[in-house]
Protein backbone atom coordinates (compact mmCIF):
# COMPACT_ATOMS: atom_id res chain seq x y z
CA UNK A 1 0.00 0.00 0.00
CA UNK A 2 1.26 3.43 -0.96
CA UNK A 3 -0.29 6.64 0.30
CA UNK A 4 1.13 10.17 0.23
CA UNK A 5 -0.80 13.25 1.29
CA UNK A 6 -0.12 16.95 0.92
CA UNK A 7 -2.45 19.42 2.60
CA UNK A 8 -2.21 21.77 -0.31
CA UNK A 9 -2.41 20.82 -3.99
CA UNK A 10 -0.46 23.92 -5.09
CA UNK A 11 2.94 22.38 -4.45
CA UNK A 12 2.20 19.30 -6.53
CA UNK A 13 0.76 21.44 -9.32
CA UNK A 14 3.94 23.55 -9.33
CA UNK A 15 6.15 20.45 -9.37
CA UNK A 16 4.31 19.06 -12.36
CA UNK A 17 4.50 22.42 -14.16
CA UNK A 18 8.25 22.32 -13.59
CA UNK A 19 8.75 19.01 -15.39
CA UNK A 20 5.94 18.50 -17.88
CA UNK A 21 7.41 20.66 -20.64
CA UNK A 22 10.64 18.65 -20.63
CA UNK A 23 9.24 15.20 -20.03
CA UNK A 24 6.26 13.40 -21.57
CA UNK A 25 6.38 10.67 -18.98
CA UNK A 26 8.33 9.64 -15.93
CA UNK A 27 8.66 6.94 -13.33
CA UNK A 28 7.99 7.94 -9.73
CA UNK A 29 10.04 5.61 -7.53
CA UNK A 30 8.46 5.39 -4.10
CA UNK A 31 10.11 4.02 -0.98
CA UNK A 32 9.82 4.74 2.73
CA UNK A 33 12.31 7.58 2.30
CA UNK A 34 10.07 9.38 -0.20
CA UNK A 35 9.47 9.80 -3.91
CA UNK A 36 12.16 10.12 -6.59
CA UNK A 37 11.97 10.70 -10.29
CA UNK A 38 14.84 10.77 -12.72
CA UNK A 39 14.27 11.19 -16.43
CA UNK A 40 15.92 12.62 -19.53
CA UNK A 41 14.18 14.79 -22.06
CA UNK A 42 13.45 13.19 -25.44
CA UNK A 43 16.65 14.44 -27.03
CA UNK A 44 18.84 13.25 -24.11
CA UNK A 45 20.41 16.65 -23.63
CA UNK A 46 19.04 17.32 -20.16
CA UNK A 47 18.08 15.30 -17.15
CA UNK A 48 15.53 16.03 -14.44
CA UNK A 49 15.98 14.69 -10.92
CA UNK A 50 13.18 15.21 -8.41
CA UNK A 51 13.43 14.26 -4.75
CA UNK A 52 10.48 14.53 -2.35
CA UNK A 53 11.26 13.37 1.19
CA UNK A 54 8.67 11.32 3.05
CA UNK A 55 8.92 13.58 6.12
CA UNK A 56 7.83 16.55 3.99
CA UNK A 57 4.42 14.97 3.35
CA UNK A 58 1.53 15.43 5.73
CA UNK A 59 1.03 11.70 5.62
CA UNK A 60 3.30 9.13 3.98
CA UNK A 61 3.05 5.38 3.90
CA UNK A 62 4.97 3.07 1.59
CA UNK A 63 4.93 -0.58 2.60
CA UNK A 64 6.83 -1.85 -0.42
CA UNK A 65 9.04 -0.09 -2.94
CA UNK A 66 6.93 0.90 -5.89
CA UNK A 67 7.73 2.32 -9.34
CA UNK A 68 4.88 4.18 -10.96
CA UNK A 69 5.29 5.14 -14.61
CA UNK A 70 3.04 8.06 -15.38
CA UNK A 71 2.10 10.03 -18.44
CA UNK A 72 2.72 13.57 -17.23
CA UNK A 73 0.19 15.09 -19.63
CA UNK A 74 -2.50 12.88 -18.13
CA UNK A 75 -1.33 13.71 -14.62
CA UNK A 76 -1.54 17.41 -15.49
CA UNK A 77 -5.14 16.96 -16.66
CA UNK A 78 -6.01 15.36 -13.34
CA UNK A 79 -4.23 17.96 -11.22
CA UNK A 80 -6.11 20.69 -13.07
CA UNK A 81 -9.21 19.27 -11.39
CA UNK A 82 -7.84 20.09 -7.92
CA UNK A 83 -8.31 23.46 -6.27
CA UNK A 84 -5.12 24.98 -4.93
CA UNK A 85 -6.18 24.60 -1.31
CA UNK A 86 -7.47 21.05 -1.70
CA UNK A 87 -5.75 18.27 0.18
CA UNK A 88 -4.28 15.84 -2.33
CA UNK A 89 -3.69 12.17 -1.60
CA UNK A 90 -1.87 9.85 -4.02
CA UNK A 91 -2.74 6.20 -3.46
CA UNK A 92 -1.79 2.89 -5.03
CA UNK A 93 -2.03 -0.74 -4.04
CA UNK A 94 1.09 -2.92 -4.20
CA UNK A 95 1.64 -4.19 -7.76
CA UNK A 96 -1.26 -2.11 -8.98
CA UNK A 97 -1.56 -0.91 -12.56
CA UNK A 98 -3.39 2.26 -11.57
CA UNK A 99 -2.82 5.19 -9.23
CA UNK A 100 -5.54 7.26 -7.58
CA UNK A 101 -5.46 10.97 -6.91
CA UNK A 102 -7.96 12.06 -4.27
CA UNK A 103 -8.79 15.72 -3.73
CA UNK A 104 -10.62 16.94 -0.64
CA UNK A 105 -11.88 20.47 -0.21
CA UNK A 106 -10.95 22.29 3.00
CA UNK A 107 -14.45 21.96 4.45
CA UNK A 108 -14.50 18.25 3.46
CA UNK A 109 -17.74 18.78 1.56
CA UNK A 110 -16.30 17.85 -1.80
CA UNK A 111 -14.25 14.73 -2.31
CA UNK A 112 -13.17 13.65 -5.78
CA UNK A 113 -10.98 10.85 -6.94
CA UNK A 114 -9.32 10.26 -10.28
CA UNK A 115 -7.84 6.96 -11.24
CA UNK A 116 -5.04 6.92 -13.79
CA UNK A 117 -3.50 3.98 -15.63
CA UNK A 118 0.17 3.43 -14.93
CA UNK A 119 2.70 2.81 -17.70
CA UNK A 120 5.60 0.42 -17.92
CA UNK A 121 8.45 2.72 -18.82
CA UNK A 122 11.78 1.31 -19.77
CA UNK A 123 13.88 4.23 -18.64
CA UNK A 124 17.62 4.46 -18.35
CA UNK A 125 18.75 5.52 -14.90
CA UNK A 126 22.02 7.44 -14.66
CA UNK A 127 24.26 7.45 -11.62
CA UNK A 128 25.26 11.01 -10.80
CA UNK A 129 28.24 11.16 -8.45
CA UNK A 130 28.64 13.80 -5.76
CA UNK A 131 30.76 16.47 -7.43
CA UNK A 132 32.72 19.50 -6.23
CA UNK A 133 31.98 22.23 -8.73
CA UNK A 134 34.35 25.03 -9.74
CA UNK A 135 31.62 27.66 -9.34
CA UNK A 136 28.39 27.64 -7.40
CA UNK A 137 26.09 30.62 -7.84
CA UNK A 138 23.01 31.25 -5.74
CA UNK A 139 20.68 33.95 -6.96
CA UNK A 140 17.01 34.94 -6.95
CA UNK A 141 15.07 32.45 -9.07
CA UNK A 142 13.02 35.25 -10.63
CA UNK A 143 16.19 37.05 -11.74
CA UNK A 144 17.54 33.91 -13.40
CA UNK A 145 14.23 33.37 -15.20
CA UNK A 146 14.25 36.97 -16.39
CA UNK A 147 17.80 36.73 -17.74
CA UNK A 148 17.11 33.44 -19.56
CA UNK A 149 13.96 34.87 -21.12
CA UNK A 150 15.66 38.11 -22.15
CA UNK A 151 18.78 36.54 -23.65
CA UNK A 152 16.85 33.89 -25.57
CA UNK A 153 15.68 36.72 -27.84
CA UNK A 154 19.21 37.18 -29.13
CA UNK A 155 20.58 33.71 -29.56
CA UNK A 156 19.94 30.01 -29.19
CA UNK A 157 22.82 29.84 -26.72
CA UNK A 158 23.90 31.70 -23.65
CA UNK A 159 27.45 31.91 -22.37
CA UNK A 160 27.81 31.87 -18.61
CA UNK A 161 31.08 33.26 -17.34
CA UNK A 162 31.72 33.06 -13.63
CA UNK A 163 34.61 34.69 -11.81
CA UNK A 164 35.00 35.79 -8.22
CA UNK A 165 33.83 39.28 -9.21
CA UNK A 166 30.50 38.05 -10.46
CA UNK A 167 28.62 36.08 -13.03
CA UNK A 168 28.02 37.23 -16.60
CA UNK A 169 25.38 35.91 -18.99
CA UNK A 170 25.97 36.71 -22.67
CA UNK A 171 24.20 36.04 -25.94
CA UNK A 172 24.93 37.25 -29.44
CA UNK A 173 23.18 36.80 -32.74
CA UNK A 174 21.89 38.60 -35.82
CA UNK A 175 20.31 41.45 -33.83
CA UNK A 176 23.42 42.16 -31.83
CA UNK A 177 24.71 41.12 -28.47
CA UNK A 178 23.51 41.17 -24.89
CA UNK A 179 25.41 40.95 -21.63
CA UNK A 180 24.00 40.78 -18.13
CA UNK A 181 26.47 41.03 -15.28
CA UNK A 182 25.56 40.28 -11.71
CA UNK A 183 27.87 41.12 -8.86
CA UNK A 184 27.92 39.27 -5.60
CA UNK A 185 25.72 41.04 -3.07
CA UNK A 186 26.79 42.02 0.42
CA UNK A 187 24.52 43.04 3.28
CA UNK A 188 21.19 42.41 1.60
CA UNK A 189 18.21 42.64 3.93
CA UNK A 190 16.47 39.58 2.60
CA UNK A 191 18.27 36.30 2.10
CA UNK A 192 16.17 35.50 -0.96
CA UNK A 193 17.54 38.57 -2.75
CA UNK A 194 21.18 37.60 -2.26
CA UNK A 195 23.58 36.70 -5.03
CA UNK A 196 26.30 34.49 -3.62
CA UNK A 197 29.24 33.12 -5.60
CA UNK A 198 31.49 30.36 -4.35
CA UNK A 199 34.37 30.03 -6.78
CA UNK A 200 37.31 27.63 -6.81
CA UNK A 201 38.16 28.22 -10.49
CA UNK A 202 36.59 30.58 -13.01
CA UNK A 203 34.46 28.90 -15.69
CA UNK A 204 33.07 29.83 -19.10
CA UNK A 205 30.38 27.52 -20.45
CA UNK A 206 27.81 27.67 -23.24
CA UNK A 207 24.27 26.32 -22.87
CA UNK A 208 21.14 26.12 -24.98
CA UNK A 209 18.63 28.83 -23.99
CA UNK A 210 15.71 26.55 -24.78
CA UNK A 211 16.57 24.20 -21.95
CA UNK A 212 17.46 26.92 -19.46
CA UNK A 213 14.07 28.47 -20.12
CA UNK A 214 12.39 25.10 -19.60
CA UNK A 215 14.14 24.78 -16.22
CA UNK A 216 12.83 28.17 -15.11
CA UNK A 217 9.32 26.69 -15.10
CA UNK A 218 10.34 25.64 -11.56
CA UNK A 219 10.62 29.30 -10.47
CA UNK A 220 7.32 29.29 -8.51
CA UNK A 221 8.74 26.54 -6.28
CA UNK A 222 11.60 28.53 -4.80
CA UNK A 223 12.87 32.05 -4.14
CA UNK A 224 16.42 31.08 -4.97
CA UNK A 225 18.09 28.97 -7.63
CA UNK A 226 21.55 27.42 -7.45
CA UNK A 227 23.76 27.00 -10.52
CA UNK A 228 26.71 24.59 -10.17
CA UNK A 229 29.32 24.63 -12.92
CA UNK A 230 32.63 23.07 -13.83
CA UNK A 231 34.44 22.99 -17.17
CA UNK A 232 33.14 20.37 -19.61
CA UNK A 233 30.54 18.82 -17.33
CA UNK A 234 26.78 19.37 -17.14
CA UNK A 235 25.42 22.44 -15.40
CA UNK A 236 23.20 21.70 -12.40
CA UNK A 237 20.28 24.05 -11.85
CA UNK A 238 18.71 23.36 -8.46
CA UNK A 239 15.47 24.64 -6.97
CA UNK A 240 14.77 23.69 -3.36
CA UNK A 241 11.20 22.87 -2.48
CA UNK A 242 10.69 24.13 1.06
CA UNK A 243 10.49 21.33 3.65
CA UNK A 244 9.89 18.74 0.94
CA UNK A 245 12.92 18.26 -1.26
CA UNK A 246 14.39 19.63 -4.46
CA UNK A 247 14.33 19.52 -8.23
CA UNK A 248 17.61 19.44 -10.11
CA UNK A 249 18.11 19.88 -13.81
CA UNK A 250 21.31 18.74 -15.51
CA UNK A 251 22.25 20.23 -18.85
CA UNK A 252 25.15 19.17 -21.05
CA UNK A 253 27.24 22.13 -22.19
CA UNK A 254 27.50 23.03 -25.86
CA UNK A 255 30.87 22.59 -27.50
CA UNK A 256 32.43 24.15 -30.60
CA UNK A 257 31.15 22.62 -33.83
Amino acid sequence: MFEARLNNATTLKKILDAIKDLLNEGTFDCSDSGIQLQAMDNSHVSLVSLTLRSDGFDKFRCDRNLSMGMNLGSMAKILKCANNDDTVTIKAQDNADTVTFMFESQNQEKVSDYEMKLMNLDQEHLGIPETDYSCVVRMPAMEFARICRDLAQFSESVVICCTKEGVKFSASGDVGSANVKLAQTFNVDKEEEAIVIEMQEPVVLTFACRYLNAFTKATPLSNQVQLSMSADVPLVVEYRIAELGHIRYYLAPKIED
Binding site: V45, L47, E124, L126, G127, P129, I255, D257
Partner: peptide, 12 residues
Protein backbone atom coordinates in the same frame (compact mmCIF):
# COMPACT_ATOMS: atom_id res chain seq x y z
CA UNK B 1 27.24 21.17 -30.94
CA UNK B 2 25.11 19.73 -28.18
CA UNK B 3 26.48 16.73 -26.30
CA UNK B 4 24.31 13.89 -25.05
CA UNK B 5 23.84 13.93 -21.27
CA UNK B 6 24.44 10.16 -21.20
CA UNK B 7 28.04 10.70 -22.28
CA UNK B 8 28.79 12.21 -18.85
CA UNK B 9 27.27 9.67 -16.49
CA UNK B 10 27.26 5.91 -16.17
CA UNK B 11 24.04 3.95 -16.32
CA UNK B 12 23.09 3.04 -12.76
Amino acid sequence: MQRDIRSFYKTA
